Simulated scan of single mutants.
Amino acid sequence: MELRQLAYFVEVARLNNFTKAAGRLRIAQPALSQQIRKLEQELGIKLFKRTGRGVTLTWAGEQFLIGAEKTLAEAQMAKDSVKGFISSPHGKVMVGALESMVQTRLPSLLTSFSKKYPGIKVFIRENTTEPLLEALKKGELDLALAHSEVIYSSNIDLIPPKGLRAKPLCEDELVLIIAKRHPLEKRKKISIKELREESFVSFKEGSGIRSQLLATCNREGFEPLIAYECASPRTLVAEGLGVSVLPRLMTESPGPSISILPLDPPLSRWVSVFYFEGRYLSPCANALLQFVERYLISENEF
């Protein structure tokens, strides 16, 4: 058994597809399939079962994946230790983040991080919770800053990947935003059930805030009318095209003029940092993980 075979196996397991894994590994698919067959023959077990759209792990494959990722992690850790990366990390980190984090907390965090670790370059991929966690599963991201409460919405046939771990970082209050001179503008606070007749501007499907809004409205006995979905609801709300529920931090940052109403009872959402337990985190990714935890948790205490 070779480390190369373990790496091939892990890539196929993450992507559930031989063709995609071969492309990521930059080898021919027949060569990849041959190496996996050799590994299965040596182990005396089937690691994958075919499906209509690719492959999935067998029960034995799921157990083997745990050990394979651990072995690859220890091998990479040994290499980094010899190269001196652990004591003085330098390299790049791929991080997925919610748009609300990119617009509010991340800029100052990354500025502080770059001062402490000038040798580490951080690359950000912005998206909603579901695609971020799928990218994390596939190994396209090292870390993801996403919603804890709603990992996968009920209308999508997906389950959280095994081994996914989350550390809560900060809690954001959710508020209602409306256009200036809206009939509700003079209210001091408002409940979700009073918004039954309103048109909403929402983030696209996969957003934790959208899922939370839908769940809250359903508990109040109605389905919200989502007239528009976009990446920047505030812009459309300011033009009087509907109302929206957003994190307070996003509403208080510079942007089109809107009015803010607290919700009663209050709504909030937790943002967590996600990673895979047992999967190797490079010294750069580990440094960022620890920094994010300290920075955002201490920020949330004030």
Score class of each variant (00 low, 15 high):
L39W: 03
A7C: 06
A75H: 14
G96C: 08
E223G: 03
M250W: 12
L213R: 11
P168K: 04
P160M: 03
A7N: 11
S148I: 10
M1Q: 08
T71I: 13
E293D: 05
S148D: 09
G163Y: 00
S191Q: 09
M1V: 14
A28I: 10
R125C: 05
P118I: 08
L141E: 02
A146P: 02
K92Q: 14
T251R: 04
L236E: 02
K162E: 13
D172W: 05
K92A: 13
K193P: 01
A22W: 05
P224M: 04
A28Y: 13
L143K: 02
P118C: 04
P131R: 04
P265V: 06
Q290F: 10
I120T: 00
K116V: 08
E220S: 07
L169M: 01
Q29H: 06
C170K: 13
A78K: 15
P30N: 07
P161Y: 01
F64A: 12
I177Q: 07
A287D: 08
V245P: 09
L43G: 06
L6F: 05
A146V: 07
A227K: 14
F274E: 07
L3D: 09
F123Y: 15
T111R: 13
E293N: 00
L3T: 11
A21L: 10
A73P: 03
L132N: 11
N16M: 12
V122K: 00
L110I: 04
T111H: 04
T51V: 15
R234V: 11
V201R: 02
L184E: 02
N127F: 12
Y8E: 11
P247R: 04
I209M: 06
R248S: 10
M101I: 03
F64I: 02
V55A: 12
A287H: 02
L98P: 00
G119E: 01
K188L: 15
L176K: 01
L32I: 10
L249H: 06
W270G: 08
P247V: 10
L15C: 06
P30Q: 03
K180T: 14
S232L: 06
Y295E: 00
L43Y: 07
L15H: 13
G119L: 00
L136S: 03
P247D: 09
E299M: 00
T104V: 13
I190M: 03
T71D: 06
F48T: 07
N218Q: 14
M1H: 11
P118N: 01
V122M: 02
K167R: 15
E223R: 14
S211F: 01
I192F: 13
P168D: 00
E194N: 09
L15M: 08
L267W: 02
F18P: 10
T51Y: 10
N16F: 15
G240V: 05
I178Y: 08
N155T: 12
T111M: 10
N127T: 11
S112E: 12
E277P: 02
R279F: 11
A13E: 09
M1P: 08
Y228F: 15
G52A: 14
A68W: 01
F113V: 00
T216E: 15
K38W: 11
P118R: 06
P233Y: 08
E2K: 14
L236V: 07
A7T: 09
S298H: 00
T251H: 05
L263N: 02
E11W: 04
G67P: 01
V292H: 00
E149M: 13
A215N: 13
V55S: 15
M1G: 07
L158N: 06
F113L: 02
L263P: 06
V201A: 05
R269P: 01
A78P: 00
A238Q: 05
G54S: 14
